[in-house]
Simulated assay, not measured.
Amino acid sequence: MKYILFILFTVLTNAAAQVMLKQGMLSLGPLSFTADTVIARIFQVVFNPWVFAGLATFVISMVSHLYVLSKVELSFAYPFLSLAYVAVAVFAYFVFKEDLNAWRIAGIGFICVGTILIAQSGMSSHDDQPSIEASGAKTAKIGSAS
């Protein structure tokens, strides 16, 4: 559980990236590609300040997630990413005035309950788990003969 803050940072940066990407695409309008404008349009999208910030935030989120994966089991860390759905729905409601109806709220509730159950399943087993190296397991070096 001591890595939960890093996991939540990953979730929040992932959700923030989605919001930035949406804002960028709203500022660009609907996309249409033709054979002679496809490259120019791709550059226009990627270098839109909001889209660029969203992509950069995704990189930060991925680096954080890689750190988390180096510390805890994948089956523990990955389900927490579903909380990004919750954060995005809340941000979209407040920032973009998107609908947050009863079905979406129920889905958010299920996601939260599932994440809590997964968190409870790893409360003690993940903090005290020795790393592979500490347990005496040998690692093979790439390119060396065994």
Rank of each mutant, 00 (worst) to 15 (best):
G114N: 09
V95C: 00
V88C: 10
A119L: 11
G122Q: 10
N101A: 13
M123V: 13
I108M: 02
R104Y: 06
Y93F: 13
F94E: 05
I116K: 04
G109T: 00
A102Q: 04
Q120P: 02
A89Y: 03
S82L: 09
S82Y: 08
E98K: 09
G114D: 07
S82H: 09
H126K: 12
I118K: 04
G122R: 09
T115C: 12
G114Y: 12
A106G: 11
G107W: 00
V95S: 01
I118Q: 03
D99N: 14
L100Y: 05
Q120E: 09
S82I: 07
G107K: 00
D128E: 15
A102I: 06
Y85Q: 09
D128V: 14
I116D: 03
S124N: 13
I116L: 12
A84C: 12
Q129K: 15
S121T: 12
V113Y: 10
P130E: 10
A119R: 05
A84W: 06
A92D: 08
K97M: 00
G122W: 13
W103E: 02
I108D: 02
G107I: 01
Y93D: 00
V113S: 07
A102W: 06
G122V: 10
G114I: 12
V113G: 07
Q129P: 05
R104K: 14
V88N: 07
G107L: 01
S125P: 06
G114S: 10
M123Q: 14
L117P: 03
L100S: 04
A119E: 04
S121I: 09
S121V: 08
V86L: 14
I111L: 05
D127Q: 11
I108C: 01
F94A: 06
F96V: 01
V88F: 12
L100F: 11
I118C: 06
S121D: 13
D128W: 14
G109Q: 03
A89R: 00
L100T: 02
I105C: 05
G114A: 12
S82R: 08
Y93Q: 01
I105S: 01
Q120W: 13
D128M: 14
M123W: 15
A119Q: 08
V88P: 04
P130Q: 07
G114Q: 09
C112N: 06
I118H: 04
Q129W: 10
G107F: 01
I118E: 02
V88G: 06
I118T: 07
A106R: 05
V88T: 12
C112R: 04
F110E: 07
H126Q: 13
D128R: 15
R104C: 03
V113Q: 08
F91Q: 02
D128N: 15
A84H: 08
V95H: 00
A89D: 03
D99E: 15
V113W: 09
F110W: 12
A92R: 02
S82W: 05
A87Y: 13
D99K: 14
L83S: 06
F110N: 08
F96R: 00
I118R: 02
F110I: 14
A92L: 03
S121Y: 13
D127C: 08
I118M: 08
I118P: 03
A102E: 03
D128S: 15
V113E: 04
S124V: 12
A84G: 11
M123H: 13
S121K: 14
I111T: 04
V95P: 00
W103M: 04
A119N: 08
A106F: 15
A87H: 12
A89F: 07
